[in-house]
C-alpha cells in the first residue's frame, strides 16, 4: 500500500528523518515507534505532504506521490488523524465532519456520517456541540471520524492514546481494528509500546531520525527486553 524509499525529510535545513525505508502492506496496521523527537511525526507529515522532502520517495500503491501537493493527497486516499487531534475547535462536531469530506461530493456525506456515528455513537449525541467543548476521548473519536469522512485507503494516526483514559484508548483501538478488518491500511504512531504491539502487524522503530528496528509485531514481542533497548537507547540520545 505505502512504500517509503530512503525518505529524508525535515523543515528547511533541519533534517528530522534520514533514509527511512519501509513497506506497509494493504489492510495491515503498521506501528511507528520511538522516543520523542525521533522523526515519527515528521515521517507521516511527509506522507501527508506537509513538510519538505529532502531525499528519497513516497509510493502509494506503486505510484510515486513524492511531489504531489498536500491538498491533492486527500483525493489519493490518504487521511490524517494528527497529533493532539487538532480539531477545528470553534466548529461543531457536524461541521468538523463536513470538513473531513470536503474533497468529495456533498451527496456522499450523509452515508459517511452514518458510518462514523456507527463507530462512535457518542459523536451523534454531541453533533451540534462545538468540538472544543468535547472531552479528550470524544475529541479523538471526532479526529478519527473526520479522517474517515475523507474516504481514506491509508489512515495516518499520530499519538492515539496521548492524554486519554485507558477506557477511551480501548475504544479507539477497537475502532482501528474494526477499520482494519474492513480493509483499511493504518500507520499508527504510539507512545504506549505494549498497546501498539497488541494491535500492530508490523513495527518500525525510529531514533534520532534513523530507522533502528523493523520487523513484525510478533517478533518484537518475542525479542522482549532486547526490543525495549531499542526504544530505551533512543531515549538517551533523543533531543527531547
Amino acid at each position: 500500500m505505502l512504500t517509503l524509499d530512503r525518505l529524508s525529510c525535515g523543515y528547511g535545513s533541519v533534517q528530522a528523518a534520514h533514509d527511512v525505508s519501509l513497506h506497509v502492506t494493504k489492510g495491515s496496521i503498521f506501528a511507528l515507534l520511538g522516543p520523542n523527537g525521533a522523526g515519527k511525526t515528521s515521517t507521516i507529515m511527509a506522507v501527508m505532504g506537509h513538510i519538505d522532502i529532502q531525499g528519497g520517495s513516497i509510493l502509494l500503491e506503486g505510484a510515486d506521490i513524492t511531489k504531489r501537493r498536500a491538498i491533492d493527497r486527500v483525493r489519493l486516499g490518504v487521511a490524517l488523524v494528527p497529533e493532539g487531534r487538532q480539531l477545528f475547535s470553534d466548529l461543531t462536531v457536524d461541521e468538523n465532519l463536513t470538513v473531513g469530506g470536503y474533497a468529495f461530493p456533498a451527496s456522499s456525506d450523509a452515508a459517511k456520517r452514518e458510518r462514523v456515528f456507527s463507530y462512535f455513537p457518542r459523536l451523534y449525541e454531541r453533533r451540534n456541540q462545538m468540538s472544543g467543548s468535547l472531552s479528550g476521548g470524544e475529541q479523538q473519536m471526532l479526529a478519527i471520524g473526520r479522517a474517515l469522512m475523507a474516504e481514506p485507503r491509508l489512515l495516518l494516526v499520530d499519538e492515539l492514546s496521548l492524554g486519554l483514559m485507558p477506557k477511551m484508548v480501548d475504544l479507539c483501538l477497537d475502532a482501528l481494528l474494526a477499520l482494519k478488518r474492513e480493509g483499511l491500511t493504518i500507520v499508527l504512531i504510539e507512545q504506549n509500546t505494549a498497546r501498539a504491539l497488541d494491535v500492530a502487524d508490523q513495527v518500525c522503530v525510529l531514533s534520532s531520525g534513523l530507522q533502528v528496528y523493523q520487523g513484525t509485531a510478533a517478533e518484537a514481542k518475542a525479542a522482549g527486553s532486547m526490543f525495549a533497548k531499542f526504544l530505551g537507547m533512543g531515549d538517551e540520545v533523543a533531543p527531547g
Binding site: 498536500a70 486527500v74 487521511a79 466548529l91
Partner: peptide
C-alpha cells in the same frame, strides 16, 4: 454555517494546515 465553502473557510481560519489535509485550498 450552511455552505461547505463557508465551513471550509472557518476551518482554515481555525487550523490552516489541517484544513489543507482535507483538500481545502
Amino acid at each position: 454555517t450552511r455552505t461547505r465553502m463557508g465551513i471550509g473557510w472557518r476551518a482554515t481560519v481555525s487550523r490552516p494546515q489541517i484544513a489543507t489535509s482535507f483538500g481545502i485550498d
